[in-house]
Computed example of a mutant assay.
Amino acid sequence: MLKVPDHQVAGHQAGDGKLGSLIDDSGRFYKPLQGDERGSREVTFYTSFSSNTRIPDHIRRFFPVFYGTQLIEASDGSGLLPHLVLQDLVSGRLNPSIMDIKIGSRTWAPQASNDYIEKCLKKDRETSSLPLGFRISGLQIYVSKELGFWKPERTSFQRLSADNVRLVLRKFVSSNTSAESDSEPDCSFASIVYGGSTGILAQLLELKSWFEDQTIYHFYSCSVLLTYEKELALKGRIPGAEFKLIDFAHVVEGGGVIDHNFLGGLCSLIKFISEILTTPDECTSKASPKDSGENRLWSGNANNE
Rank of each mutant, 00 (worst) to 15 (best):
I141P: 00
G264N: 03
E126H: 12
Q13N: 01
N114A: 15
L84P: 03
T155W: 13
K102D: 08
E42V: 06
K208M: 12
L207K: 04
Y116G: 00
R154T: 13
Y67R: 05
D182I: 08
G35C: 03
H7P: 00
I98H: 02
K145W: 05
N301S: 14
I136V: 13
R41E: 09
N52K: 06
K102Q: 08
F219D: 04
L81I: 04
D6S: 13
S221Q: 07
H250P: 09
E229K: 04
K102C: 07
D291Y: 09
H250R: 12
T227S: 15
F172Q: 01
A287W: 02
S26I: 06
E275K: 13
L22Y: 01
D182Q: 12
S161P: 05
G148N: 07
I270R: 02
G79M: 05
E275T: 11
G255N: 15
S183Q: 07
D100K: 11
L147I: 06
F243P: 03
G264S: 06
P185G: 06
T107E: 04
N301C: 13
S268N: 05
A287C: 09
E146V: 11
S174P: 10
Y220Q: 02
A233L: 00
G11P: 02
G199I: 04
G92M: 09
I59A: 03
I273M: 10
E180P: 00
G254A: 08
A74E: 01
S21M: 05
S299E: 11
P56Q: 10
K31Q: 09
D36F: 14
A112F: 11
F49Y: 15
A10G: 04
G68C: 09
K271P: 00
G39K: 12
T279L: 15
G256L: 02
V85I: 12
M99Q: 03
D281A: 14
S274F: 09
D115Y: 05
H58W: 04
L139V: 00
I246A: 08
T198E: 14
L204V: 04
R237Q: 15
S197M: 02
D88W: 03
E42Q: 08
K3H: 09
G20C: 03
S113A: 06
S188K: 15
E253M: 12
A249N: 09
S21P: 01
L86H: 01
Q70E: 15
S129M: 01
K119S: 10
N164Y: 14
S299V: 11
F149C: 04
G35D: 11
R41A: 13
P32L: 08
D16Y: 08
P239V: 01
G236A: 03
V43R: 11
I98W: 00
Y30D: 01
I72P: 07
L263G: 02
W150R: 07
V90H: 13
Y30M: 02
E73Y: 11
C267A: 10
S268H: 02
R28C: 04
D186V: 09
D100L: 10
W108F: 14
P32T: 08
F272E: 15
N301Y: 08
G133E: 05
